[in-house]
Each structure stands twice: as structure tokens, then as C-alpha cells.
Simulated scan of single mutants.
Amino acid sequence: MKQIILWLLLVLPWLSLFFLKMITVRRYIPVALFMTVIHSLAYQAAHHYGWWNEKGSSLFGWDTIIPVPWVYGAYFVIVIWVFHFTFGKFWRYLTVNILLDGGFMYIVYPIWGRLGLVSGNSTLPTITVVAMMVGFSLIIYLFQLWLDGAQSNLDDQN
């Protein structure tokens, strides 16, 4: 059952992108990829420094450090959806991210821990992880602003 849930967490978010216009998906794919890199680095650092351990969310056996279903499935696609609904409205974006990150860490993550989908072993306080996630969201917001500015400059030159 656990493997089925992990596969669904990897595949279903991607299927949800069919409900967006292709231009929207193309616009926000770079920021989602950037967030994937940030999350991958964060999981590497967490493994190295012993902040948390996600062995319970391995889908393939080789993904014990970076959980593929979360980082390359759900997180990736959620970034696109959040940017679709909130980009350009910073306070809405920040509020949505705080609610999603806090809700995930304080409500969803403990439930998944009881179901065995995540290990739940962390040396960091939950609020620290939420603050880290919100910090990442601020970084990627700035990245998207930069991308839009660069695209605008290219459009002006043509």
C-alpha cells in the first residue's frame, strides 16, 4: 500500500498539469526546476548534517537521501500551481506558502509518519523546517521576478 501511495504522489501531481494552459506550465517550469535543485541540496545537507532522515519515503531503493515522490513529483508541481495562482501578488504568495508549508509540517507530515510514508526523525524543530521552506519560497519568488525581467528585456530587444 505504501508503494502505491508513493507512486500516486509522484504521478498524480504531474497529471494535474493538464488542467493548466501550456503557456503557464512553460512559464513556471524553470522556477519549479530551480526549487527542485534547492530541495535536492537541502536533502543532501540534511543527510550530511543529520537534520532529518527520509528512508521511509524511498520509492526505488536508491532514493534514500532525496525522496523522489516529494521532490520530483508533488513539490515540483505544487510550485507551478502556487505561482499560477499567486505570482505578482507577493503577500498572497507569501501567505499561501506559509499556510502550505506550516500545514504540511504540522498536519500532513505527522499523519504520513504514522502511516510509515516518512520517517519523522528530525533533529531540527518543526518551526525551523517551516522557516527553511518559507525561505526557499522567497528565493524562488525572486528567481521568477528575475526570469520575468530577463524575458521582458528579450521581448523589448526583438
Rank of each mutant, 00 (worst) to 15 (best):
F34D: 04
M35W: 00
M35A: 11
T36Q: 07
I38S: 01
I38E: 05
I38A: 09
S40T: 14
S40G: 10
S40R: 00
L41E: 08
L41C: 15
A42C: 10
A45N: 04
H47N: 15
Y49L: 15
Y49M: 13
W51V: 05
W52T: 06
N53G: 07
N53L: 14
E54M: 15
K55Y: 11
K55E: 13
K55H: 15
G56P: 02
S57A: 15
S58R: 03
L59I: 09
L59Q: 11
L59N: 09
G61C: 10
D63K: 11
D63V: 12
D63E: 14
D63T: 12
I65N: 03
I66Q: 07
P67V: 06
V68S: 08
W70G: 01
W70E: 01
V71N: 07
Y72E: 00
A74V: 07
Y75D: 12
F76E: 05
V77S: 06
V77I: 13
I78G: 02
I78K: 01
V79M: 08
V79D: 08
V79F: 04
I80T: 07
I80K: 03
W81L: 02
H84F: 15
G88N: 02
K89H: 14
K89N: 12
F90S: 03
W91E: 09
W91H: 11
R92D: 04
R92V: 14
L94R: 00
L94M: 13
L94P: 09
V96T: 12
N97P: 02
N97A: 06
N97C: 04
I98C: 06
L99I: 13
L100K: 00
F104T: 14
F104L: 11
F104Y: 15
I107P: 07
I107R: 00
V108M: 10
Y109V: 12
Y109E: 15
P110K: 10
P110I: 08
P110A: 10
I111K: 03
W112P: 00
G113M: 14
R114S: 15
R114D: 14
